[in-house]
């Protein structure tokens, strides 16, 4: 039962939250975690892959557009199709998953056209997932964002599907959990902050759970997400 999980954190040229994810998983949560170089193909041994935040290839063309062609991404769909394998894309990692078509939709520039770094509140919309089983439905998590292109967009059909299938996991809200326009910090459609794929093993989210791990950093709510995965995999 006390077996540690194996997390693999993919390092693309320009990733810059890779070390933070390693710290969160290894030092704070005492799991096994290591970096995976973007040219590596050997990812079978991991339970969960983390696509960290940063600016892969400088985000020079579009966020995530070049990274999705990295070698490691060739094996990632196979990985995702296996049983009990999970992927979390955070910020730039989310953008890469979108570009790779592993999650639906795309990212636009924030509505104010500026990079925004601050603590935001998000509600947990679906707790019946490997990523949120530790949370209560509607629970408000305080987790920071840091991005210039986090304005999630998808067409109406996709949105309806996401809603119908309960694949919207996090939404921007105010401190009382109300979904308001004002709380929609980057202008995302339907206040979306995080979504999951149909199979339910790939999560993409703009807020950085690895930055909300200890109270000195302002919040410990990020732990709930990591701990949910750990619990889920251990139970299954």
């Amino acid at each position: 039962m006390n077996k540690k999980l194996k997390f693999g954190i993919v390092v693309f040229p320009g990733s810059n939250c890779d070390a933070d994810c390693l710290w969160a998983l290894k030092d704070v949560l005492n799991q096994e975690a290591e970096f995976i170089w973007h040219e590596s193909k050997n990812i079978k041994k991991y339970d969960c892959l983390v696509l960290p935040g940063g600016f892969s290839y400088g985000d020079y063309l579009r966020s995530g557009a070049i990274a999705r062609f990295a070698k490691v991404m060739e094996s990632i769909s196979d990985f995702a199709n296996k049983k009990n394998k999970f992927i979390i894309g955070i910020c730039n990692g989310f953008q890469i998953l979108l570009e790779a078509g592993l999650l639906p939709g795309a990212m636009l520039h924030n509505k104010n056209l500026k990079f925004i770094c601050e603590y935001v509140n998000i509600t947990v919309e679906n707790t019946n997932t490997p990523f949120t089983n530790r949370c209560a439905k509607g629970q408000v998590l305080k987790i920071p964002i840091a991005h210039g292109e986090g304005n999630y967009y998808c067409d109406e059909r996709t949105l309806n599907t996401l809603i119908a299938k309960d694949k919207i996991i996090f939404r921007y809200c105010d401190s009382n959990g109300m979904i308001t326009d004002e709380a929609n910090v980057n202008g995302s459609i339907y206040n979306i902050a995080g979504i999951m794929n149909t199979k339910g093993n790939i999560l993409g989210m703009m807020p950085h759970p690895e930055r909300a791990m200890i109270k000195e950093l302002g919040s410990e709510d990020g732990r709930l997400i990591w701990q949910s995965i750990i619990d889920y995999i251990k139970k299954s």
Partner: peptide
């Protein structure tokens, strides 16, 4: 022109 240069390198690699 860093953008062009980075895209160029990526295309060649692809």
């Amino acid at each position: 022109e860093p953008q062009g240069k980075t895209v160029n390198a990526a295309l060649v690699k692809m």
